[in-house]
Design a binder for these strands. Structure first.
Ligand SMILES: [Zn+2]
Ligand SMILES: [Zn+2]
Ligand SMILES: [Zn+2]
Ligand SMILES: [Zn+2]
Ligand SMILES: [Zn+2]
Ligand SMILES: [Zn+2]
Length: 373
DNA sequence: GAGTTTGAAACT
DNA sequence: CAGTTTCAAACTC
């Protein structure tokens, strides 16, 4: 009778939160159609002729299309792949580690998964729960939602870290070194959110919001409180200085004009700020479908327009790889000097505190990984 | 489809 | 913590 040991697995949380998570419902309850309607990704099509191709939407696991807006969504059968909606493809993790997207999402693997030696199945519930528990014990936020949709509360981050409410933006932020946060390698980008102070990315060019912009916004708001006399922009983040090319070489923009562009999209696949740059034919990028893209109507309380051309968004997130970007050729091996991420954020915050203290006291020097906070 | 690149997760 | 290894996805060709 083994007993007590494994039984106490679920002490205070008999109902794991992942059972409530939308993902769980999505996988287990909602039909793919339903789910895809709520979280679609629009595929771009440049041609706007009458016979424009039917809109295609992709969910994390499948693609759908419909003849027109009056038709129902139907699953797209990809040729060759048989089952197009494959999920995880784990080969060595047994789907019992966070490497596995299914496991990480708090859902069991299902048929479309292509995993090998999968233990993430109801049959092995014990193992799954035990493992979850174990991982959770190490990192209580391991299974917490990765992104928080804060439409406009940068400040929350700056709130007193010591007594941050439970809603602590646990977002761990990314740690990108080579992708410039321009591809789905970056979790921030993939989630459709801009980088934040939690990120330790280098050369951030996240189309949803660059880290430096975020930091600037914080500084700005911070200064509001305290400023009054500070007028000269002492120095922006190191990156801002270092990346004059990415930003406008000589930007006439006042340094305090940045507004964070965290759009309140609630979907997993969000569209980055559109750009006229690539649109050869002007802004041919038109909402392909009213009902679905309605979220972004032209009436924005905030000027969502990117601060400036700084943010060039190449394409729309879709099943097609993000190629057009190419802002900085990743090939260039050494793009970044031997800096460490910490210096970046540290520098901006505490950079040169000679006399003037325009630092944000609220901002923790190192919020990075502090699950408990 | 095979092979490469990437950064989170895991490990030490 | 930091440095290294492992891992599966994103990406490229
Ligand atoms: Zn898996
Ligand atoms: Zn799976
Ligand atoms: Zn599996
Ligand atoms: Zn990133
Ligand atoms: Zn980031
Ligand atoms: Zn970034």
């Amino acid at each position: 009778m083994d007993n007590s040991q494994k039984k106490k697995i679920e002490t205070p949380t008999p109902k794991s939160k992942f059972e409530d998570s939308p993902v769980f419902n999505y996988i287990n309850n909602l039909s793919p159609i339903e789910a895809v309607r709520s979280i679609p990704t629009v595929q771009t099509f440049n041609t706007l002729s009458f016979t424009s191709p039917p809109p295609v939407f992709t969910s994390p696991h499948a693609s759908f299309h419909r003849e027109s807006r009056f038709f129902r969504w139907r699953k797209v059968e990809e040729p060759g792949e048989g089952d197009s909606c494959k999920r995880c493809n784990c080969k060595k993790s047994k789907c019992l580690k966070l490497y596995c997207e299914c496991f990480a999402a708090g859902v069991y693997c299902i048929e479309p998964c292509s995993c090998v030696d999968c233990f993430n199945r109801p049959i092995h519930e014990d193992t799954v729960l035990a493992t979850r528990k174990q991982i959770e014990s190490r990192n209580p936020l391991a299974f917490a939602p990765k992104v928080i949709r804060n439409s406009d509360s940068i400040m929350e981050t700056t709130d007193d870290a010591s007594k941050t409410p439970a809603s602590a933006r646990h977002k761990r932020g990314c740690n990108c070194k080579k992708s410039n946060c321009l591809k789905k390698y970056c979790e921030c980008f993939q989630s459709g959110v801009g980088c934040s102070i939690n990120c330790r990315c280098e050369g951030c060019k996240n189309a949803f919001g660059k880290k430096d912009a975020y930091l600037l916004a914080i500084m700005e708001s911070k200064q509001e409180e305290d400023l009054s006399k500070v007028q000269q922009n002492p120095n922006l983040s190191k990156e801002v200085e270092q990346n004059p090319s990415s930003d406008q070489p000589s930007t006439p923009l006042p340094p305090y004009r940045h507004t964070v562009v965290h759009q309140p999209f609630l979907s997993k696949n969000r569209l980055p700020p559109t750009q006229f740059f690539l649109g050869a034919g002007s802004s041919s990028f038109r909402k392909p479908d009213g009902d679905l893209t309605q979220a972004r109507n032209e009436k924005k309380p905030l000027q969502t327009v990117a601060e400036d051309k700084t943010e060039i968004m190449p394409e729309i997130l879709s099943n097609t790889p993000i190629t057009t970007i190419k802002a900085i050729s990743p090939n260039s091996k050494r793009v970044s000097p031997p800096h460490i991420g910490s210096s970046e954020s540290g520098s901006i915050l505490g950079k040169r505190t000679n006399g003037r203290k325009l630092i944000l006291r609220s901002i923790p020097a190192f919020p990075s990984l502090n699950p408990n906070q």
